[in-house]
C-alpha cells in the first residue's frame, strides 16, 4: 500500500488505425479519494480508463508510452494479474459485463479467476451482492433483471474481487431517477478509491469532491468539483453544460 492509489505519468496512446487518443496525461489520485472524470464525448475518457488495468496501451501490445502505477505497483506485463485485481472496472453497458447464466455465477467469475473455491467463494459472492442489495436475486438470469438491477450486479461483480480502486464508466447513464439515487447510496457507502467517468454533472458533485476535466486527450483542469462546475468559462470552452436550473453553489456536496 505504498504510493498513491493511481499515478499516471505522461501517458500517450494511439489506436492501431493511427488516431491518437491521449496526448500526455498526468494525474495522481490518493487512497480513499473520490474523483470524477468529466469531459465531452471523444475526449479520451474511456480510453484512459481502459489503460488503468492494462487492457489498452503498451502492456497490451498497443502503441503508446508513459507510466502508470497502481498503489505503488508499476503496470508491467508481469504484474498484470495483480493490477487487474486492484483495479475494478465497471463497464457502461451491464449486458457486456454480465455474461454468465446466473447472477451468482457472474459475481463468482472474478474471484474464481483469483483462485477462490468452495465456501470461501460463496461467502465472497454473498458479501458483494449484499453490498449492492441484490442478495435475493442471486439465482436469476441477468436478462430477468431491470436495467438498474443489472447495473448494480455489474458493480457487485467487480466488488467481489475486493479492488483497491473502483473505476466506473458512466454509472448513471440510462437509469431512472430512483435507480440513479439507489446507486449513489451504494457508491457513497463503499470504502474504496473511486474514479468515475460521467456526463451527469450533479452526480459528480454529489459523489466526488474532486474532478478531472479532460478534452482532446489531455487533462485540462483538476480541482474541486464545485469550483470546476462553477467556472462558466471553462465549462463552455469544453462543451460541458449544467442541467437547467442547477446551481452548483447552492447544493451540498460530499465535502465536510
Amino acid at each position: 500500500m505504498s504510493g498513491p492509489a493511481i499515478h499516471v505519468e505522461r501517458l500517450v496512446f494511439a489506436y492501431p488505425d493511427g488516431r491518437q487518443a491521449l496526448f500526455g496525461v498526468d494525474f495522481t489520485v490518493e487512497h480513499g479519494e473520490r474523483v470524477a472524470l468529466l469531459g465531452p464525448n471523444g475526449a479520451g475518457k474511456t480510453t484512459l480508463v481502459l489503460h488503468l488495468n492494462g487492457i489498452l496501451g503498451s502492456v497490451a501490445g498497443g502503441t503508446g508510452s508513459g507510466g502508470i502505477q497502481i498503489g505503488g505497483t508499476g503496470l508491467h506485463r508481469e504484474h498484470l494479474a495483480v493490477i487487474r485485481r486492484k483495479v475494478g472496472l465497471v463497464f457502461q453497458d451491464p449486458d457486456d459485463q454480465l455474461f454468465m447464466p446466473t447472477v451468482r455465477d457472474d459475481v463468482a467469475f472474478g474471484p474464481a479467476n483469483l483462485g477462490l473455491r468452495g465456501a470461501e467463494l460463496d461467502e465472497r459472492v454473498h458479501e458483494a451482492l449484499v453490498q449492492v442489495g441484490m442478495q435475493d436475486h442471486a439465482d436469476l438470469a441477468p436478462h430477468h433483471l431491470s436495467f438498474g438491477q443489472r447495473r448494480r450486479v455489474a458493480v457487485a461483480t467487480v466488488l467481489a474481487m475486493r479492488p483497491e480502486v473502483l473505476v466506473l464508466d458512466e454509472p448513471s447513464s440510462n437509469l431512472d431517477p430512483a435507480a440513479r439515487r439507489e446507486l449513489a447510496d451504494i457508491l457513497s457507502e463503499l470504502d474504496v478509491t473511486l474514479l468515475m467517468i460521467t456526463h451527469d454533472l450533479p452526480y459528480a458533485l454529489q459523489l466526488c469532491e474532486r474532478s478531472l476535466l479532460m478534452d482532446d486527450g489531455r487533462i485540462v483542469a483538476d480541482g474541486k468539483t464545485r469550483d470546476l462546475l462553477g467556472d462558466a468559462e471553462l465549462m463552455s470552452a469544453h462543451r460541458l453544460e449544467l442541467p437547467y436550473g442547477f446551481d452548483p453553489l447552492s447544493v451540498s456536496g460530499p465535502e465536510r
Partner: peptide, 15 residues
Amino acid sequence: RGERVHLAMRSRGYT
C-alpha cells in the same frame, strides 16, 4: 459486443 465482453472478462482476471 463480443469484443467488449472479452474486455470485461479480461478485466476480471480471465486467462
